[in-house]
């Protein structure tokens, strides 16, 4: 018996990323969370496809009917910066998805991040990261995907507030849509009353992101453990911020997904 596949839909205009998000000069934050067991890279790829190819075409076995909401005439640029994965990790994936190279830019941030910056003040490091983004962004509408910025806290002894005020806020000003991909592994602890400083800062960072985001996308494993034909859940919920676009709202939903090597499929929950 075949299982009913479901098209990805995030906004009330049946789109994955609505064009209304790019019509004025406002900047909005979206939080994507994942765990070690369920990596959100398939979802990040789907978002990049949505912006560049007009829809998350690789979802549901290359026959997704999801409406991107962005017509091909909207020249929205994608810039990806990761503190975890190297440039080639993304370019290989995007090449496989046949995303044109002129539609996106992957920055070299994770490459020798510590070796290149050892002994430098943290402000210099953040300035260098911001400069890389500035150089690749133009005045046209753009999406910035920032993967695992919390790693900076561990590497350069930053706290959560400094990371928000020095990196996230300036970066948000540079683009129309900032998608921050965070790990929520630090939320899973057995003794929440005895958290160490680092754990508190990691939790603080993600929770602060939640309050700044109008949309939160959580990729998690199943609560019941493993299943042969389901990898985990994708939950679409509102965040703590309001979206100042009257015609648009987030459609809260939950999907099951099955992540295979080449393909990810969404199902009804």
């Amino acid at each position: 018996m075949s299982v009913q596949k479901q098209e990805l839909q995030i906004f009330s205009d049946h789109s994955v990323l609505s064009r209304h998000l790019f019509t004025d000069s406002s900047s909005n934050l979206v939080l994507v969370t994942d765990t070690v067991a369920t990596n959100a890279s398939w979802f990040v790829n789907a978002l990049v496809e949505t912006v560049t190819l007009g829809g998350p075409v690789s979802l549901n076995g290359n026959n997704s009917g999801s409406n991107s909401g962005l017509s091909s005439s909207d020249p929205v640029k994608v810039v990806v910066g990761s503190f975890l994965n190297h440039q080639s990790y993304f370019t290989t994936a995007f090449d496989r998805l046949k995303v044109p190279r002129n539609r996106y830019n992957v920055l070299q941030i994770a490459e020798d991040l510590v070796v290149k910056n050892v002994g430098k003040p943290v402000d210099v490091v953040i300035e260098w990261v911001l400069k890389q983004f500035e150089e690749s962004l133009s005045n046209s509408p753009s999406v910035v995907i920032l993967e695992k910025p919390e790693i900076l806290m561990a590497l350069f002894k930053l706290n959560s507030d400094e990371l928000h005020l020095k990196l996230i806020n300036p970066l948000l000003k540079l683009c129309s849509l900032l998608i921050v991909v965070n790990s929520v592994e630090s939320f899973d602890n057995d003794f929440p009353e005895h958290l160490g400083k680092d754990t508190v800062e990691f939790v603080r960072f993600t929770t602060s992101c939640f309050h700044k985001s109008f949309l939160v996308l959580s990729v998690r494993p199943l609560d019941t453990g493993k299943a042969k034909d389901v990898t985990g859940t994708l939950a679409i919920t509102r965040g703590g911020a309001l979206l100042d676009i009257p015609a648009l709202h987030v459609v809260e939903n939950q999907y099951l997904f099955h992540d295979l090597k080449e393909n990810t499929t969404l199902f009804y929950r």
Binding site: S26, L165, K166, N169, H211, K212
Partner: peptide
């Protein structure tokens, strides 16, 4: 504002507190 760079329509003055 500590959280958003967007100036609300009702605000006569907007101060970005980052940094």
């Amino acid at each position: 504002s500590f959280e958003t760079p967007n100036r609300p329509k009702y605000a006569r003055q907007f101060i970005d507190a980052s940094g």
